[in-house]
Design a protein around this nucleic acid. Structure first.
Lengths: 222, 222
DNA sequence: GTCAGTGTGTCACAATTGTTACACTTTTTA
DNA sequence: TAAAAAGTGTAACAATTGTGACACACTGAC
C-alpha cells in the first residue's frame, strides 16, 4: 500500500515496515480523486499535510483577472504544498487540479506535527524539504536580481562551472535557457553572439568554452 | 540571561522559566564576538543553529568578483541563517560580520533537532520560521516575474488593496518603491504618470486612488 | 520667513530587450 | 533517404527602461 513512500523525500531512510508502523500510529486519510477534479483553490487554508500516492496533479498560479501565470506539475511521491502547512501565510498558492485519477495520503496538521516529533528521521527529512525550498528560491532570486542578459549568462556559466577546465555542459537548448532566464530567445542568442565576438566565450552545441574567465567575472561585478 | 529570547520567534509562547529549562536541558554554547569580526564566510557549512542575543550582525552576499551584492542586517533575537541549517545546500549564503560587539547562542545541529523534538511549541515555531521564509520568497518571485513597471505597479496596488474602498495607502516614497520594484525612480514616475493620464489611478502623496479597477486588473492579465 | 533637505514631475537621449520574420543547419521521423 | 521538425543565427524595427539633468513643491529647522 505505502510502498511508493519508500522513495519519498519525507520517508527517506525508513523501510516499508517502519513506514507502515509510523503511519498506522497516527490518524490519516486516503483521498481518491478523479481526472480534472479541482482539489484545492488558491487561497484556501492548508490544514493537512498531503502526499501524492498515485496520479498526476497540476498547480496553477492565477492572477487577479483569473489568468494562469505559472504551472507546476506534481508526481508521486511528492508532498503537496509542503512549505505552506506552517507559516503565517498557510494557504494554497495555486489552484490544485488533477491531470489523472489518483490518491492522496493526508494527515491533519496536529497529527502531522506529532508525527514529526515522534521520529527524528521524519523531522530531519521534512526540515530538509522545506529548507531545500528556501534554498532553491533563494538561488532563483539571486539569479533574477541580475538585470541584463549578459549578467544572467555570466552568472549561469560561472555557477555551472566545475573546478577542472573551462568548459560548461549545457543540458538544454537555447529556447529552454531563454525561458529559464525569463528573456526572449532571439535576445539570448544575440547576447551570446556578442559575447562570442568579444572572445569571452565560445558557444558550441552542448558545450560552452570559457575563453576569458576574468572578463566573464567582471560582467557580474558592479 | 535568556530574557531576550522570550520575544524571539523560536521561543514564542514559552515563558522565561520554560526557556531556561529547555535550554539548560541540551548542550549549547555562548559565543562572544567583537565589532568588525567576521563570523562566517559565505559557503561554509552551517553546523549550528544560532540565535543572536546581543549586538548587530550584517550578512553580505558576494559575487564571483568579490563585490557585495545584497546586504541584510540582523538584530536580536533573530535566528541566523535559520533556513540553511537543514537542506541540501546547508552552507552560509552570505559573509557574516559583526557591526557591534555581541553574543550568540548556538546549538549543534543534532542537539537542535533534539530540542525541536522535545517541545511541540518549539517545533511549530521553527517550522513557522522556515515556512514563512518560503512564503516570503515565493511572493517575491511572483512579484519579480512581472516584467514591465506597469505590471509591477498594478500587482502591488491590487495586493495592498483592502476590501472596502478603492484607496491604497502608500507607506513609502517613490524612491523606496522604485528600489523595491528594482527599477529606476524616474522610470517609475513616468509609468505612474502614464497610468494617471489613462485615468486608471490617481496618485496623491500618501494615497493612491484606483479609478478604474478593471483596467488595472487587465494590466496583469496576459 | 528663510533655508536646506527631501520628494516628485519631467525631459532628451542612450541602452537594452522584445517582436517578428526568415534563412540555414541539425536531428528526428517516416 | 526524403521529409518534417527542431534548433540556431541574424536582421530590422518597436517597446521599454535607464541615465543624468533640471525645475519645482513641500517640510521642518533655525
Amino acid at each position: 500500500m505505502f510502498g511508493v513512500l519508500k522513495s519519498s523525500p519525507l520517508f527517506s531512510g525508513l523501510d516499508v515496515l517502519e513506514i507502515n508502523l509510523v503511519i498506522n500510529n497516527v490518524l490519516h486519510q486516503i483521498r481518491n480523486f478523479s481526472s480534472n477534479e479541482v482539489l484545492e483553490f488558491s487561497g484556501e487554508t492548508v490544514g493537512k499535510a498531503m502526499i501524492l500516492l498515485e496520479g498526476k496533479l497540476r498547480g496553477e498560479m492565477v492572477d487577479f483577472a483569473g489568468n494562469s501565470l505559472k504551472i507546476e506539475d506534481l508526481e508521486p511521491p511528492q508532498m503537496v504544498a509542503a512549505a505552506f502547512l506552517y507559516g503565517p501565510q498557510n494557504f494554497f498558492p495555486v489552484n490544485l487540479s488533477a491531470l489523472s485519477e489518483g490518491k492522496i495520503l493526508s494527515f491533519h496538521k496536529k497529527d502531522f506535527t506529532r508525527l514529526l516529533s515522534s521520529d527524528p528521521r521524519l523531522l530531519n527529512n521534512y526540515l530538509n524539504i522545506v529548507s531545500g525550498k528556501v534554498q532553491f528560491l533563494s538561488n532563483k532570486i539571486t539569479f533574477l536580481s541580475f538585470k541584463t542578459i549578459r549578467e544572467k549568462i555570466a552568472y549561469y556559466l560561472l555557477n555551472q562551472l566545475r573546478s577542472p577546465g573551462l568548459v560548461v555542459e549545457i543540458g538544454q537548448n537555447q529556447t529552454a535557457l531563454a525561458s529559464m532566464f525569463g528573456v526572449a530567445r532571439p535576445s539570448l542568442a544575440r547576447s551570446i553572439s556578442e559575447m562570442e565576438n568579444e572572445k569571452i566565450i565560445r558557444w558550441e552545441r552542448n558545450e560552452v568554452h570559457i575563453t576569458n574567465i576574468l572578463l566573464l567575472k567582471s560582467i557580474i561585478g558592479r
